[in-house]
Simulated assay, not measured.
Amino acid sequence: MRVSGVLRLLALIFALVATWIFIRSYISLTMKTIRLPRWLAGSDSKEIKAVKTKCGLSKPCPDNFFAFKISSGAANVVGPTMCFENFVIMSPVKNNVGRGLNIALVNGTTGTLLTQKCFDMYSGDVKLLVKFLKEIPEDTLVLVASYDDPGTKMNKETRKLLSSLGSSYAEQLGFRDSWVFLGAKNLKDKSPFEQFLKNHPDTNKYEGWPELLELEGCVPRKVF
């Protein structure tokens, strides 16, 4: 074989080797370029689980706080609901609510349910309510929700006792008003956990009743 032929052959081999090296480097670089964002995506695309909060609150409560949610009744159709620390205390489903005032007592240190009762303020449970409020133990949280008519026959003594639990609206509570409240026995200041809507034809959402109220929050242990 002539020298020129050998040189051409060597040049061809060199070109093929160089091309092969280039293609291999390019593929390797490309694969690295592709894999990097996939790896990053893999780390970021892990299934993000929704944080479940007690009683379905919009955000979780800090340590040493109790989570609660109270809904008033809707007109005289749907009864109120109370949830405390993810436990439904009262609700239409449990069939333990009634027209008037629905009240639950919870130990303010342990969060244990003490009792729950409903008082028909139209038929005359006022005396029973007064006795109940006077016998509330110390260190007790009091959850209240109205249904239908909470205030028609409420007297001064009842209003005073409810006010002593931290209510700002017990004195105003009247016929078919909507009211939700969380207070405590011998609370020194007014409770920040309260909502109230007056029954008024111009503002009522339902015919003859104001709209349903919903109150949620985080109450510290031993708020008293």
Rank of each mutant, 00 (worst) to 15 (best):
L10H: 06
L215D: 10
V6C: 09
W209Q: 11
R176M: 11
F14Y: 07
S45I: 07
S163D: 01
A145G: 12
K198L: 15
Y206G: 12
I23Q: 05
S25Q: 12
V180P: 07
T158I: 11
E216T: 10
D139Q: 07
A145C: 06
N96H: 12
M121R: 13
R99S: 13
F84C: 02
E214Y: 00
V142D: 02
Q172L: 13
H200K: 12
L9P: 05
V223Q: 04
K94G: 09
I103S: 03
N86R: 00
T81P: 03
R35H: 04
R8E: 15
S191T: 11
M154Y: 01
F87H: 07
F193T: 05
V142N: 03
G5H: 14
L128Q: 14
L215F: 08
P150V: 08
P210W: 12
L165P: 02
G79H: 03
T53E: 11
K59R: 15
V17F: 11
V180G: 05
L16N: 06
C83Y: 04
V97M: 08
D44W: 15
M154R: 01
L29D: 02
K59Y: 13
S146I: 08
T158Y: 01
M90A: 09
D125C: 05
R221A: 02
H200A: 15
P210L: 13
C55D: 00
L143I: 01
N186E: 08
